[in-house]
Design a protein around this nucleic acid. Structure first.
Lengths: 182, 182
DNA sequence: GGAGCTATCTATAAGAC
DNA sequence: TGTCTTATAGATAGCTC
């Protein structure tokens, strides 16, 4: 979209990077505004510059959308009596697991479809699928560790103390599902 | 940007509006992704469709950015001196972070190489890259939660008890680097 | 009813001032 | 440093199947 094509990689020159940030941020907000009007939807964008300065765009407002987003996540998982951090973490992990599961299904479909492509494309996919699984492995491993950690804590008297500590909020990431080739 | 110029006003036809929403949302997320990479900044986008379904994009994750935005008087993760299970978990996360970083580099290289391929293969890659990032986001989110959790525990007296409890082993996944097309 | 196509419109990388 | 210009890359509206 400019005189020359640029690679999507960190812009090294600080000056150019600042200009790029400013231009593209403006463009992004404009696009977001158009989307909200055209489709009548609510949207919020938050960006932190390199200098850690916050820029935001929201319709009707960042707070409204973000709050709604956070509530959505919280509502969808409290069926538990004891409301402490570990339960929230566990509930969160369940959602993450679900998402990972969905991804796994998609990956499987991909592998199957991959066999219908020419050799080069197929190899390409296989390699990617492999990395996918490794990444999933990492996620699952992390979840396991957290779970174990939580379990240990729950059986200890620490629970009594922790219940009175401030807790990390729970949120939900939405996985946009999209998959199709040929 | 299309066969015809359109006015920025609500698209009346529900079907067309849905298509527009889907296309532009994808485009917006792609732009946000480019911005975060080009300028090395953190960004989060949350959108609610007409059906009130949430869609989000975040680098490193929606959670991180939104939390940072809301608190706006941010985090402080001391480089702590206590040595026990939590430190092991933290060390583990550092390795995982390194691995994710490596993957990110590979993905970036892939995007660049992708531009040299035919259109179909390219689109294919872009989609995959996107999902990669989503998975990475999940991993990062999990890591953050564990970190937060650990931090909370560290400042409590529980540490004394936990130090005597068996601990989840530390592991390391080896990422097989491999990338080749063309 | 979602994927692919392409003519056309829009965003923006470099320049110029 | 900011603003304006312009050639070009990129996004997408309308369409097809």
């Amino acid at each position: 979209m400019g005189r020359r094509k640029i690679q999507i990689a960190v812009v090294k020159d600080p000056n150019t990077r600042q200009v790029t940030f400013s231009k593209r941020r403006t463009g992004l907000f404009k696009k977001a505004n158009e989307l909200s009007i055209l489709c009548g939807v609510e949207i919020a964008i938050v960006v932190f510059s390199i200098g850690n300065k916050p820029y935001s765009f929201g319709h009707p407002s960042v707070d409204v959308v973000v709050t709604k987003f956070l509530q959505h996540a919280t509502n969808s998982n409290d069926a538990l009596g004891s409301n402490n951090s570990s339960n929230e973490v566990v509930g969160d992990m369940e959602r993450l697991n679900q998402q990972l599961s969905d991804l796994q299904t998609q990956i499987l479909e991909e592998e199957i479809k991959g066999t219908k492509h020419d050799e080069r494309l197929k190899q390409h996919e296989v390699t990617q699928v492999f990395q996918y699984k490794e990444l999933q492995g990492l996620c699952l491993e992390l979840q396991r560790k957290v779970k174990d950690y939580v379990d240990e804590i729950e059986v200890s008297e620490c629970m009594l103390l922790l219940a009175q500590e401030p807790v990390v909020g729970v949120r939900k990431e939405v996985i946009t599902k999209k998959r199709r080739k040929n």
